[in-house]
Amino acid sequence: MSVFIIRRLLQSGVVVIIMSFIVFSGVFLIGDPVEILVSDDADQEEREEMIKSMGLDKPFLVQYGIFVSKALKGNLGESFVFNEPALLLILDRMPATMELAVVSLMIAIIFGIPLGVWAGLKPESWASKSIMTGSILGFSLPTFWVGIMMILFFAVMLGWLPSTGRGDVQVILGMPISIFSWDGFSHVLMPAVNLALFKLSMVIRLARAGTREVLHQDYIKFAKAKGLQESRIILVHVMKNILIPVVTVLGLEFGGLVAFSVVTETVFAWPGMGKLLIDSIGLLDRPIIVAYLMIIVFLFVFINLVVDILYSILDPRVRLQDVKS
């Protein structure tokens, strides 16, 4: 088991290094930040001083080297615009994004698994067919447009929910959380549902496909032959088998949720790191873009690692393979 974890850790390290290079070189090519930062009437000398102070005059590889050595100390550069450490700015916005992603994930799981299993158990029924058609809709609807439509209906036309921003937050265990007050909850509801829609459809389909596949297996028939209650067959024999793929995919998709929150946060003006990214792209604030991407890379690598380990706990067959190898 520990050999397995160490090997995965090493692999993850390599991925982080490669990605940091790709991200840095990609962002290095973006426009000329000096154009934006220096006022138009600044003379040549002031410009050069600015360039020097930001380290933009050095060759690319040197800049990358400086970036890496600083990054190892937790310094991902200072925002050109805010003159504050980029990492801090992003970490400041992170809880809002995480809350959004977690609430969305909960919505996707709580509604998705039962609906999907139901659709898999009774594939010919009217309800299942509606669920599946609905899930195609969920896949097809572009997130940002659904968001706009939700604002139009629930905020503009019905006036039930606030259209933008984050409401009251309570600090619980050092984390600002908004779902525990009505104001906070009403603010998070629309964006979370919006973000969840795609994953919800995915969970439904995974759960349905898994259920259908598992139901055809001999061991389900054997479980019936033992005279087990239908509920036990579904809740234990079917569920435990489909949970493995669903948990894996969902875990992997958590990063996707965080990434996709870029769109939802832009629509609902949710003050998370995704919105900060889009604003920074507009302002060509390189350090923030780099810092955001590096954090996302870390997040993804971390998630992959956790999912691998979880998977090996859930599925005894994988565990055995790794003991052997």
């Binding site: 990609g26 962002v27 090519l29 973006i30 990434a259 996709f260 792209i281 873009i289």
Partner: peptide
């Protein structure tokens, strides 16, 4: 990595 992010980085560049 999710498609949206890859595309975003590319288009920014």
């Amino acid at each position: 990595f999710p498609a949206i992010l890859v595309a975003l980085v590319l288009l920014v560049t």
